[in-house]
């Protein structure tokens, strides 16, 4: 009996099916757990799922390459998801056209601030070059950030984690900053949250108002495009 189970395990662990299914099932479990913990942004389902899968891989002695054989089918969808970001951007075309210059200027300055200050602080503290390259696009939505890191020669998986932590931090930091700076315009609140904390910030902005949510989506898309266009050209300096 035990031998048969070992045989089945040996067979299954060599097919993509096992780790593809595991990724879906663990993610499903992570969503359930996060909801039970009161939808806390610090314990985002993605962070929980990552931790859970890493524990399973370490416990079963499976290396990452074997895992990725199966998980690559999910990973591939990041490209199409990036293309799909054009749809919310198109939906907001009227607001964009009306407020083109203010949004563009704030977008470029905000996105540059995020990238330059992150790399600057880490550089001052003596971080590795690979860390610096992976830090640069961390404010941007994951599919774009990982694409940018890959182009820069950093570690896309490190960027994926940094992006998620940035999102959680943004949700914690935005409300006190908004109060401190006395910002009342929901358009401004939303745009800043989407720009600095991508999808996490956007989800939180929808909790403020629909306008804040729409502008957060706009901030997210603009930060993504601006960072993808500017960062690879600046990265020669790192």
């Amino acid at each position: 009996m035990a031998d048969e189970i070992v045989d089945i395990w040996v067979y299954l662990s060599a097919t993509p099916l096992l780790w593809l299914a595991a990724t879906f099932i663990v993610f499903q479990g992570a969503i359930w757990l996060n909801a039970r913990l009161g939808s806390n942004p610090v314990l985002h389902p993605v962070l929980l799922a990552m931790a859970g899968l890493m524990l399973i891989l370490l416990a079963t002695g499976t290396d990452y390459d074997t895992y990725f054989e199966g998980a690559q089918f999910i990973h591939f969808m990041l490209g199409p998801a990036t293309v799909a970001l054009a749809i919310p951007l198109y939906d907001h075309r009227r607001e964009i056209r009306a407020l083109m210059m203010p949004l563009l200027v704030s977008g470029v300055v905000g996105a540059s601030t995020a990238a330059i200050s992150a790399v600057g602080v880490a550089w001052l503290l003596g971080a590795d070059r690979l860390t610096l390259l992976s830090l640069a696009p961390k404010s941007v939505t994951s599919p774009i950030a990982m694409g940018v890191t890959e182009k820069l020669g950093g570690l896309p998986s490190l960027t994926a984690a940094l992006v998620l932590i940035t999102g959680s931090l943004g949700c914690i930091l935005a409300p006190p900053l908004i109060r401190l700076l006395g910002i009342r315009d929901d358009k401004v609140k939303g745009f800043a949250m989407g720009l600095a904390a991508h999808g996490f910030g956007t989800a939180q902005a929808f909790g403020i108002s629909a306008t804040a949510g729409a502008f957060a989506g706009l901030g997210l898309s603009m930060a993504g495009v601006i960072t993808a266009l500017i960062l690879p050209l600046l990265a020669g300096g790192i």
Binding site: H44, Y67, A161
Partner: peptide, 26 residues
């Protein structure tokens, strides 16, 4: 979208050493 970056995120396990060295800076 959130599900799509799980596979790459798990790849962190390959870089524990780098993170351990740079955790304060990060």
């Amino acid at each position: 979208l959130a599900l799509l970056f799980v596979p790459a995120g798990v790849g962190l396990m390959v870089h524990f050493e780098l993170i351990g060295r740079d955790w304060l800076a990060i």
